[in-house]
């Protein structure tokens, strides 16, 4: 006699916290306190990483030189989210973009706002909009809006 499979709903609940480390702390404190967007420069490879990291993957140098990459950049690519999911940070439709800040060589994933999703385009120039109450994380930038 076949029976219905016995399936038990459950969940996994564990509290975590991530330490961002010395270098990223400095960068995010600058964002929180002074609305400065910081990357880190590898002098060997002559590349500026944003988000900052403390080792260059290409040459394994220790990276310590934080540099301001500015609050303006270019949309490298983007996608529009139309469906609703509990994990989504906001009501659809909304736009995720990869943004290369002017002073950086790498792309930062973030939201694109204050624009109709249909009007977003690759190569569009955008500018960071900061939160008023900043806490020291990358969401202290609310989103990027067209320049």
């Amino acid at each position: 006699m076949r029976q219905e499979p016995f399936v038990v709903p459950g969940k996994l609940v564990v509290p975590y916290r991530y330490f961002v480390g010395r270098l990223a702390s400095k960068a995010l404190i600058a964002l929180r306190d002074d609305k400065k967007v910081m990357g880190v420069r590898c002098p060997t490879c002559n590349l500026t990483y944003m988000p900052p990291r403390s080792t260059c993957g290409r040459c394994f140098s220790k990276l310590e030189e934080l540099v301001e990459v500015g609050d303006k950049g270019t949309v490298l690519t983007y996608t529009v989210v139309y469906h609703k999911e509990p994990v989504h940070p906001m009501e659809p439709p909304f736009v995720y973009g990869l943004i290369k800040l002017d002073g950086a060589d790498t792309a930062l994933p973030h939201f694109i706002g204050e624009v109709e999703p249909e009007k977003v385009s690759i190569g569009m120039k955008v500018q960071a909009v900061f939160k008023d109450k900043r806490e020291g994380n990358i969401l202290d930038i609310k989103y990027f809006k067209p320049q």
Partner: peptide, 9 residues
Amino acid sequence: RRPDVNQVE
């Protein structure tokens, strides 16, 4: 505790 480094560091 090592709040001065992240996992990768």
